[in-house]
Nucleic acid binder design. Structure first.
Lengths: 219, 219
DNA sequence: CTTCACGTTGACCGACCGGTCATCTATGAA
DNA sequence: TTCATAGATGACCGGTCGGTCAACGTGAAG
């Protein structure tokens, strides 16, 4: 009974305050995400986020207890969009497994290219950026980024297993190879960002299909 | 005559003040390098560098006009050590070309492992860290990091060309493949740092030899 | 003995950092 | 009408940021 009452209360609150709360929180989240992605975690201050999101500082701390919590939410938010966005497309089960790799590279390329066309700079991968910047300082955020990478790695793993099953490629250590592919993807985005040239992704990306780690015990 | 006089003056200054000037500047440089590498550019303040290096803030600004100039010097310093250190070893001309790749991966692994054994955290690659953190904000530093990557890429390029010449591998686009290998190296270091586990380098590293980009016009 | 430049010292600057808080408003429930 | 709660407001906090500066010590050159 208590539970039902609570549920009803919660629901009505959600329904009635969605526009207000949801909007403010969402505005903070998307602004922070954009700024973190385009610059860096440490370089973006809460004041700047609040100004751009047209939110008062006190309001910010009503929704996020700390900057770290904001970062967590940003990662979750981006991971969701990512998973339901071009990752879901690229790793579409209807596509032949190996084509998914090409699709992934293409998606990364067009994304970065579009971003650069807009403001002249390649933002790179938000996860990679954050990982290198804060994983030595914040184990909680590092663990979260780790989980995101693990999830991405699983997509590669799945595709590789299916490719093997279909006889498109010889058997291999699909888990390790999947991780290697993810690493390669992050690496070419890193290099492309350093050169500020999205074409690097296009030029080097196709090599992802040549990556291969043999099974440890192929007996 | 003037030139000779100046040269003599300079030399005497260098000789006499080496201990004082050189020592202070070097202390700042190596402290900054260590801190930047272990944390991040934005997260390390000049005050902290000065305290650890036992240098007064005014002295710091006597040697480095700004934090950006310090970063430039740090990159140069690290690039030098790097080029004359294990990169020179790994890409030893006496080693068979393909073995140099294994050597490079090994060196990266042991380096990161040693660092982690000391303070529990994998610092990753200073260049990669800085590249992702500041290349959207500082084109001068980005260009410098770019040059470092280019130089590293040339080592791979050279090794690949020699491997082709020796008939160890079929002809390929050695320049693009070299860049892909560098990207892969940075990528596995990124992933290893995120997992805080140097073994990732060891596990995925050997796949670097499987990377391959075909010649565009193999006619 | 003077001059001059290098290096050093530490106080100081305004701006900004992440974060707090008392206060007010809006809204739905009882 | 009263009450509780979510949310908004903006002043405020101590601390730190990158950077400046006038004063001083030192040692070699003239």
């Amino acid at each position: 009974m208590i539970k039902i009452a609570l549920d009803l209360t919660d629901r009505s609150i959600i329904l009635h305050t969605m526009n207000a709360e949801h909007d403010t929180r969402t505005r903070i989240l998307s602004t922070a995400r954009e700024l973190f992605h385009g610059r860096s975690y440490a370089d973006v201050g809460i004041k700047e986020i609040c100004d751009l999101a047209k939110v008062q500082k006190g309001s910010f701390y009503h929704f996020f207890p700390s900057k770290q919590d904001l970062a967590m939410a940003v990662i979750d938010d981006m991971a969701d969009d990512w998973a339901h966005g071009f990752v879901a497309e690229a790793f579409d089960q209807n596509l032949p497994p190996l084509e998914r790799l090409d699709y992934m590279i293409d998606a990364a390329y067009y994304w970065q290219k579009a971003a650069k066309d807009i403001d002249g700079r390649m933002p790179g991968c938000l996860f990679g950026n954050l990982a290198l910047e804060i994983s030595t300082r914040d184990d909680v955020l590092r663990a979260k980024l780790n989980a995101v990478f693990d999830k991405a790695s699983k997509r590669f793993h799945e595709a590789l297993d299916q490719a093997v099953e279909l006889g498109e490629i010889p058997p291999l250590d699909s888990e390790a190879t999947a991780a290697a592919m993810l690493a390669f993807l992050e690496g070419i985005i890193l290099l492309a960002k350093t050169r500020n040239n999205p074409e690097v992704i296009r030029d080097l990306g196709p090599a992802i299909k040549t990556l291969r780690i043999e099974l440890a015990h192929p007996n």
